[in-house]
Design a protein around this nucleic acid. Sequence first.
DNA 1: TTGGGCCAAGCAAGCGCTTTTTATGCCTCA
DNA 2: TGAGGCATAAAAAGCGCTTGCTTGGCCCAA
Lengths: 206, 206
Amino acid sequence: MPKEVATAERSPTRRKSGRREEILQIARTLFAEKGFEAASIREIGDAAGILSGSLYYHFATKDDMLDELVRPFVLPLLKQYEVIAHSDAEAPDRLRQMIQFGLQNLVQEPDLLKIVANDRKFFAKSERFSYVEEAWQDIFQIWYGVLQDGVRQGQFRSDLNLHITLRMIIELLNGTVDWFRPDGRFTIEQVIDTQVELLFGGLTPR
Amino acid sequence: MPKEVATAERSPTRRKSGRREEILQIARTLFAEKGFEAASIREIGDAAGILSGSLYYHFATKDDMLDELVRPFVLPLLKQYEVIAHSDAEAPDRLRQMIQFGLQNLVQEPDLLKIVANDRKFFAKSERFSYVEEAWQDIFQIWYGVLQDGVRQGQFRSDLNLHITLRMIIELLNGTVDWFRPDGRFTIEQVIDTQVELLFGGLTPR
DNA sequence: TTGGGCCAAGCAAGCGCTTTTTATGCCTCA
DNA sequence: TGAGGCATAAAAAGCGCTTGCTTGGCCCAA
């Protein structure tokens, strides 16, 4: 008779107690801090106050932990980008919203975003996690479409190489993951504002 | 006649043969591809057609290999940035030259630049390699000075947060390391041109 | 009394590195 | 001229340690 079970499911080792979720969040932090491969299960165990072997009562493999963290994050992320990109706002507005959404994510889910952005090499080489790299490709396409729309409508310059421009924008957002601290000198609003301003208007005064 | 005069005299194991240099370049490639820590000495040995243990005839430690690769790259890099930044050209010109220099490096020394950009976490936590992170800090300061000059002279907008702007520019350059391929669709000149144009002029047409 | 949750112990594989031995030239000098 | 000695380069074997993961059993709350 479960009391207040949020993750209730028929599968074993998942019925109650919250301990599993607790461990998962500890792992999430460590994966984000050190990278998935560099974070060892012994470290995760230590941080959870448990022996590393005991983790395998809750999870079958280390990969499972990662998958359980990343999968429910990546797919909605992709979908949300799609929603914004296909709204009927003007291209510059959609672009701004996408930047804003991407950076807001950095505040709400910094760890997961770090993992997904920093461990791209690992995801790409892993068969099991190919869906992450595929999501990245999809996201690229979505951004690209918005840029194209803007150029077609004369709202973006037509003399820029769009592929390179797109790479720049993505690297810009992903790079922010590595230096932005929510408790640091700048608010995320300042960062959003500066990035949007610089991206749209450039360094040179008008 | 001294007995143990043999080893480690004026030119230990370095007089000729080129083998050492050959191995060093193999290591450089692997460090760049997989990251320093992820590249094992057994892989380096395999790629060199040698057993891993035999590497230690040429090098004392794995760290030594990295140091021998990175040190003679980082210090001239820093110095070159200084030279450009302190020339008497106008700030926008200096900035453009610095971008150009940074990206040209990506063609001439892609491996070393990848190592220095991607393994920053490792360098930062290693006492021995602290000079790499220090060089990065110095480079930051140099860029920042140029940005400030431009703002003072009214050549750059004064309504942008310069710290955030600087982070963006650096991430932009470092991010390029991860996707640019000299044999790919774009020439480095195209990339330089697009990055400079976007950075100076922004997406919005004038 | 049952089973969820953990500990204790350990396995195989891989890590950076060390030591000892072997193979192959090249140089010197009787 | 050719044998001994040295330098170079690598193999072979194994060290101590860490990795992800397994197994068997204990404890205690329901």
